[in-house]
Design a protein around this nucleic acid. Structure first.
Lengths: 201, 201, 201, 201
DNA sequence: GATGAATGAGGGTTCATTCAT
DNA sequence: CATGAATGAACCCTCATTCAT
């Protein structure tokens, strides 16, 4: 039913922008132009609506990234594609990354085992790339999770802070560089990380 | 006067762990063992309590980092000290970084101009370091804000996700590496970033 | 739907006897035997509940008085009917007149434009009667609003002070005349006013 | 002490304009620029502060009117002086009349016996005048309390509604007559009432 | 599927009042 | 006299949720 989809879409946007607690079922129902009770008919509870959205988002992200991993021919290219795929997902599915940031800050109180499992799956793809790079001697030995956070943290902060940076530019003078990008960001991120990871040779 | 401090301390912890909306004034008063009305006597409103905490935190972080900048002798060392100072503050003042993550996700709805200004001050310190590095030819030209996000994003995600990673380890097998650090994280972060930033020659 | 009516009726009585501020939504809900949240479901806010009641009352008063104005054959009779109609409404809709007294004392802080407009409509009916009387030479020239206040003020004070007068009689000796009426009050009021308004001839 | 007077003066104004319940002790303390606890030091409770003001006001009104009653030579002049004295007090002590209107509407919940007694004293002055007029055949027999309400009600409504009428003029066109007086109001009121009371011959 | 009405619990906030100094 | 700090009760309002239709 299209109403079900409208609820999901509105709720996702609201949860992303305002957070779980600041989003009321009333707001969701008004935004989706449906009766409040209908949300309960479809999703049973607020908690369930939230985790439905989360699982759907992370699964879709996982599948998208996974799909692009066929193209890999070597670890460096693998890293490039991974970062690019991640970056693209963070643009397309910006809402999820906002939710993710909040969940990290809240120690993942609302994250179900299934959601965590899928997220680990995404990280495992990177792990394989890096381990294969270390094995082949192109990457030095690093704590893999630091690289995870390098990618996830940077992209999340960057792509979720657009509005905030816009706001800052309005409030302060001479801060236009906060919005204008010098070169392709995903590319720069890749360059910095791949250089940083290179083995000493 | 000590009651005022108790309120600030409890509120900060709660806001950090649960977020602004999920934290009730009742909770704060119970945690600080004071009458709820006393919070209003000292802080006028929840919003004001929150922004008082924010301003206090960011100012203290700014001052701490600023204080360490005397030690700098060259851009590479400056970067190292900056990252280390930032990292240390993120450990000491973990609560603020959780709040920061949520505020980024919410487009900074609760951030006052003064708070933003102070935060910009922290970023400006890094900007100077990088620009001086570019000038001296040790760093290649990069979009400075990408480096900002590399540092802030990575450290925030890493140091705020400790509990979440612990939780994951309890729920899933063979994930101990999520907690055990290989080497010093701040040092690794520095190495990756400084290599990444190096100019091509 | 009957619950909505119960809320309106209880709220009206309470607002009249205790005033806007002394009337709590808790009281209203208990009196109407409904859940407090239901009042907000139907009326959105206390302020809105109050102004709904006011508008409904003044409209009904206006219509009742207007309806009796067909009977008029000359200004003196018009005045008589007006006073009588006003008096009857002040008995039937006593609550409104108590609210009116408080609103006058508060400079009408809670009175919406629509309420004021309708009230002006009631006063305009009197204005027409008096002006036609002056034109025909039966009434001397007077400041019309003094006559308004003569009627509205006297009737309001008289018909809202019943309980207070009863209370006085209980507290003091020899004050029975405060309750027992000598003759018909509306009639006396009419006689005094019509004599008073007569042109000198 | 002058602070005591400041409290009384501010409280009186606030009680008059906003009513007992809408006036908070905080407001009073801020308006009078004194510490809140000092009000309790001087007046023990809000209720006591209120009734102190009331008793003081009504006593002063009683004395002022009583003082002018020496001038009387006949009932008609007595009535004129009474109305004029009342009118003057209602201008000078406008606050009390606003409070009075609210108290009537609330069945005098806050009125102490002493206050009521003093108010009855004011009414008794009028009663004497009228009774002497009836005795001398200049006034017809009327229910005295109707005359009371004629005077008190009209003057109260008229002199407390100035701000409200001003507001109406701002909101609606062609209502200037609500503020501009045609002739002396106290004089008109006297003329209307004395004509109205005249015995038939 | 879809809705309007209804509810108990809890939200932030303000209140009159007290007390130690 | 005068004050800053502190409190319990009550305020208006919103919440997630349910139910009859």
């Amino acid at each position: 039913m299209e109403k079900r989809e409208a609820i999901l879409s509105c709720a996702k946007r609201l949860f992303a922008r305002k957070g779980y607690d600041a989003t009321s079922m009333d707001e969701v129902s008004k935004c989706a132009d449906v009766n409040k009770a209908l949300i309960y008919y479809h999703f049973k509870s607020k908690e369930n609506l939230y985790s439905t959205i989360l699982l759907h988002s992370i699964s879709s992200i996982h599948d998208s990234i996974k799909a692009r991993m066929d193209e890999i021919s070597n670890p460096e290219e693998g890293l490039k594609i991974y970062i690019d795929a991640f970056y693209m997902e963070a643009i397309k599915n910006n809402a999820f990354f906002r939710i993710l940031m909040r969940e990290v800050a809240s120690d993942g109180v609302h994250l179900s085992k299934k959601v965590l499992e899928t997220f680990l799956g995404v990280l495992d793809i990177l792990k394989e790339i890096i381990e294969s790079g270390v094995e082949k001697g192109v990457f030095g030995e690093r704590d893999t999770k630091v690289v995870h956070f390098l990618i996830v943290g940077t992209i999340s902060f960057y792509l979720c802070s657009g509005e905030l940076r816009k706001k800052i530019i309005n409030d302060f003078l001479d801060r236009e560089e906060l919005l204008k990008d010098i070169g392709d960001v995903s590319q720069q991120l890749y360059e910095i990380i791949v250089r940083g990871l290179k083995s000493d040779v």
